[in-house]
Every structure is written in C-alpha cells, then in structure tokens.
Design a protein around this nucleic acid. Structure first.
Lengths: 184, 184
DNA sequence: AAATATACTGACTAATTAGTAAGTAAGCAA
DNA sequence: TTGCTTACTTACTAATTAGTCAGTATATTT
C-alpha cells in the first residue's frame, strides 16, 4: 500500500483515529509497529495536529477521486457507491473520520478543527447536489430541502458504523438497506 | 443541583464526557474545579471506568424517569418530548452519551463497554415500541420495520448534536424539524 | 467513653505523554 | 571533495496520567 515512511505513518494514524479516536492514540502507537523512533514521527509531523490534518487531507483527496469516478453515473447509483464505501469501512471494523473527530472537536487544535469543518461541509455539499439532481430526474425520492436531507443521510451512514460497533449483528445491513429503500 | 461531593463528581464527569470525550479528561479536570484532591475522586470511584459507569447509570435512570412521565401521552407527543431532550442538550452545547462513547468503544474498560451496550439497546427498545404503537394508531408514519426505523431516528438525533458542534448555525433545528416532519 | 465508619488530605509512584535538540549516515549537487 | 539535504536515531525533558497508601478529622454507633 504505502511505500514511504511518511505514508505508512499516515496509514497507521488513520487506522488509529478510526479505531481508538484522536485523543486515545500516542506517538508510541505509531513508532513501535513501524519499528522507528518516536522522533522520526515528529520529523514528518511536528505536532499531533499536523498528523491529524494530513490524515484528513488524504481522506478528502480519496473522496474527491471517488466522486470524480462516479460523475457520469445516475444519482441513485452514486448514492449506492457511497453506501459501498461505508460498507467497506464496516467490514474493516472502522468508523468514518467525521464520526470519530466530531465528538472530539472541542479538544482538537484549531487548524485541525478547520480541516474537520472543511471535510464536513465538503461531503455535505456533494451529497446535497447528488440528492437535488437525483430528485430532478426522479431517480431519488424525498421530502424537504436537499441540504436538510443530506444532513439526515450522512447522519445515517455515520451512525450505522457507530451502532454496528456496539450492537454488532446485522445493524449495518439493516440501516444501509433502509436508507437505500427510503431514497431510491 | 447536586449536594454531595459524589454527585458533583458525576455531574462534572458527565459534562466532561459530553464535551471532551472519555479519553480526553483526567482526574485533575474533576478535582480542581471542585477544590478537592485527586485521591478524593478515587475514594468515590476507584477507577475511571467506575466513574464512567456511574455517569451512564445516572443517565439511564433519568431517561427511565422521563419515559415513565410520558407514558400516557400519544406516541407522536412522546417523540416530540425526546426531541426536546436533545434540544436541551443542544442548547447546553453538549452531545449525547451514545454519540460520545460509541466512537471510543474499543478503548473503554470491559465493564463500561457493557454499560454502553445496555444504554444503546435500552433506548432502541423504547424507541422501537414508541414507533410501533404510534404507527398502529396512525399518529406516526414510516415504512419498514419499527426497529430499523428506531435505528435511523436515534441516528438523526445523535448526529444533529455532532453536526451542530462543527457546522453551527441552524443545523440542529433543520435536522430536528425534518425528523419530526418525516414521522408525524 | 470507646470503637467504627465516612470522607476525605498529603505525599507519593510508575508509566506515559507530546515534543525537543543534537548528532549521524547516506545520497546528491557544485 | 566539499557542502547541503533528507531521513532518521539517541537521549533527553517537563508535564500529565491513573492509581495507591498511610494518615486524619468528623460523625455515628455501641
């Protein structure tokens, strides 16, 4: 996956944020598995906030890549693709960055808060457009403003991973199927 | 509010879990504001997990109290009452315990994980019954199984507080209004 | 009056935390 | 070959972490 040390650090940090949360992992959790020293992590990412920002930025790039790939698809297909992304997260036993970082928002360094905000508004903007266009073509069906519905849809995707973590079983499948049924 | 030291500790811990998260507050964050020593907190709650469990147990008692108060109301009213509870949380700038503790689930001591699970299944059970009875009386309207819908509704309430924290503005109002419109 | 329980304080500890500063080995450029 | 950059290691630090244990003042019980 990642060849450079820097990419390996981001990979691991991403996984730690999703599994333990930003405040529950330490530089040692990164340096030990990679068999490097604590200071090597600080060399690439002076502060923990810098590392967090890089993790979010990589996620934003990956998301932008996905979205561009889906551009020509009908909107109901795009929605299914996004649900697939969350399903892959579910299979890995991890939650989404929004679900992990928004509860800790007040404890994050200011530059990282800004990135979290950017991530949230970005995903919401895309989802709003997707819903709006999908409804115009009668491929998606819902009531109310598209932005409000986008909030609800992202809410359900986010929570499906949170609830799965605690309730286990078919929780994720139940929620994602119900979400698709409601809209398509 | 609370007169005994023990109750004051639970009050503060509750607030800290909701604002900073379980892993981002320390015994010092509790002892300092209450002008007591670190060891006094340990006297009442030997481990941090014990403190977390007490916070959840108090929340479960409060919730049970609310629910009993609403027992005779029609189900659409009960739902509005629950939304009101979340609105009060929103006004305080805090999130719900489920939203705060489920992302950190894997880092929690086992007995606390069990309590988090109990809390989730408990709220879901109530919500499922509320939705089911409400639909039978045609006071609430939705498609699919009541349990699946309960997951979605709690998802929206939880996320409305998370998103409000980051996006600010009218996010909470938008989501709670849309939720009520969808069901009632 | 003596014994016991409650609710602490004072004084610790061992481990972990993010972060720093100085040194070094390897590769590349002038 | 001299100098510079990259990517680290070694060796720290100051602060904070949850948790312990012995002592003490104040009620309460016997």
């Amino acid at each position: 996956m990642a060849d450079t040390t820097k990419e390996k650090i981001i990979d691991l940090a991403d996984h730690l944020i999703r599994t333990k949360g930003f405040n529950a992992f330490s530089y040692a959790d990164i340096s030990a598995p990679l068999a490097i020293k604590n200071a090597a992590v600080h060399y690439h990412f002076p502060t923990k906030g810098d590392l967090g920002i890089s993790v979010i930025e990589r996620e934003l790039k990956n998301l932008a890549l996905h979205i561009r790939k889906w551009e020509k698809m009908p909107e109901d297909q795009q929605l299914r693709k996004l649900i697939d992304v969350f399903q892959q997260r579910y299979k890995l036993g991890t939650i989404c960055l929004v679900g992990s970082l928004t509860p800790d928002y007040d404890t994050l360094p200011a530059p990282m808060q800004a990135k979290v905000q950017e991530m949230c508004t970005g995903i919401l903007q895309w989802m709003t457009q997707c819903l709006e266009k999908g409804r115009a073509q009668q491929r998606l069906h819902f009531e109310g403003e598209a932005y409000d519905r986008a909030l609800m849809v992202l809410s359900n995707l986010l929570s499906s991973l949170l609830f799965s973590r605690v309730l286990g079983g078919s929780t994720f499948q139940r929620m994602s199927k119900q979400l698709a049924k409601d809209l398509i």
